[in-house]
Write a protein that binds this DNA or RNA. Structure first.
Ligand SMILES: [Mn+2]
Ligand SMILES: [Mn+2]
Ligand SMILES: [Mn+2]
Ligand SMILES: [Mn+2]
Lengths: 238, 238
DNA sequence: TTCATTTGTTAGATTTGTCTAACAGAAATA
DNA sequence: TATTTCTGTTAGACAAATCTAACAAATGAA
């Protein structure tokens, strides 16, 4: 798989990023360091170095130290910047743990387009220029503070059969919450009640053209935005 | 490469997602539809279907229609939800074009962890519950409205040699802006002035342990947060 | 200088994912 | 019914990325 932006694969970008990090501290980069940093066997590093040298991204000859070319330095630096940007987004904005953020960022960094990258950077500039907003996110948006339930939210179980509503939030414990999110119950999505449930009867709802069954307790935790109850109108995804 | 969450590769997740989308409209899914949707040759679809059937994610026998199993349906739905979440983040929050967002989202969706996914969904709930914030992002954060330069921002060129500052924003046209961002000049990053430049002499700055040269015009567009000018303190990345 | 240890390479295998070209089966049409 | 067209599979090739096991070179110690 070739990355559109750099013309090389995600794996090779990771090798460059790793070499860059090593060189920023160690003055020389060796196969062994790279293997350890990336947690692959040294036998995997050698062919990767050959591929990178073929593409003129590193200077490499058998058994010698490894150095980045101008082109390689550029890709390495850009990859690391993406890594940092994504990792900061995940930790600072979403509140993900450092470790998880590192791993997610390093997986996604290879697929961010140049424009998404620029806009994400702009998002941080935007936040930093508005301390009141930054504060709102810092204080109001963390694991401990449960989201305040707005005054006029409607419950999915209160919907008329055949009518629709837009999801505002999921009000449930982590497990049920994740199940619902995995199933597509995310804010802004339109859900239509096909058949109401009862004590032992699951609710049937339609979401993105697919019918799904929800037990009454689970349906209870889906809260909808008030007003605007048109049927058959889907405002996301064509 | 095996995705931590679902135990299958990103490519196979895309096949499941595609089958899901087709079934939501077409009642049956055929090799041809899948090949067209994913823009691969039909000869690539057959072995993918075999791999999916081996893993019990689809029901498939030679020359017959393709159907998702319970397990396959679950992964398909979750993949599509990730796709939607990321795509909405890119379009609604960052203001990326629809097309670019679709492509970025479909590339990144396979690598989001369960917790990042849940937090991203929470971010939308959070925004929707605070219309004033939503409005701020909608109006203040788009391509057309250039970010207001805060009152007391410091320019990189005003830094004392040896002293540091945290980047607040890049104030430059798209091209220079992207170059700087690719080079690691993103909000919050500490930059240290190593050697000031002159009319024809580039500035040398240190960023993440690496020295970089910046022409005076370009250095001019790096604006720093006021106060807090300690040297050698790096608040991002260990 | 010789031997042991560390480091790096090669050989050979495996999995995944793609392609083109050739072929086979099914469906539609004449 | 016979033939054409559409659809799907197979065969064979290739590139990328990894592994283990065996080997080779370089380094360091005795
Ligand atoms: Mn990576
Ligand atoms: Mn990375
Ligand atoms: Mn995808
Ligand atoms: Mn997708």
């Amino acid at each position: 798989m070739t990355n559109a932006d750099s013309g090389i694969t995600g794996s090779l970008e990771d090798y460059l990023e790793t070499i860059y990090r090593i060189l920023a501290r160690n003055s020389v980069a060796r196969v062994k360091d790279i293997a350890e940093n990336m947690e692959v066997s040294p036998a995997s590093v050698t062919p990767a170095m050959k591929r990178l040298a073929d593409k003129q991204l590193i200077r490499y000859s058998k058994r010698s130290y490894i150095d980045l070319t101008e082109k390689g330095l550029f890709i390495a630096r850009r990859t690391m910047t993406r890594h940092k940007l994504l990792s900061r987004f995940l930790t600072e904005i979403l509140g993900i743990s450092r470790k998880q953020a590192e791993s997610d960022a390093c997986a996604m960094e290879h697929f961010l387009s140049e424009s998404s990258m620029e806009r994400l950077a702009a998002f941080f500039e935007f936040l930093a220029a508005r301390p009141e907003l930054q504060a709102l996110i810092d204080t109001g948006f963390d694991e401990s503070a449960p989201l305040k339930i707005g005054p006029e939210l409607l419950c999915l179980t209160d919907l008329e059969p055949g009518s629709s509503g837009r999801i505002a939030m999921i009000n449930a414990g982590q497990q049920v919450r994740r199940e619902l999110i995995d199933s597509g119950f995310i804010q802004g999505t339109t859900v239509t009640l096909i058949r109401p449930g009862g004590t032992d009867l699951p609710f049937i709802v339609n979401l993105d053209g697919y019918d799904q069954h929800l037990s009454p307790e689970i349906a209870e935790s889906v809260l909808l935005h008030p007003h605007r109850e048109q049927t058959g109108e889907d405002d996301n995804e064509k």
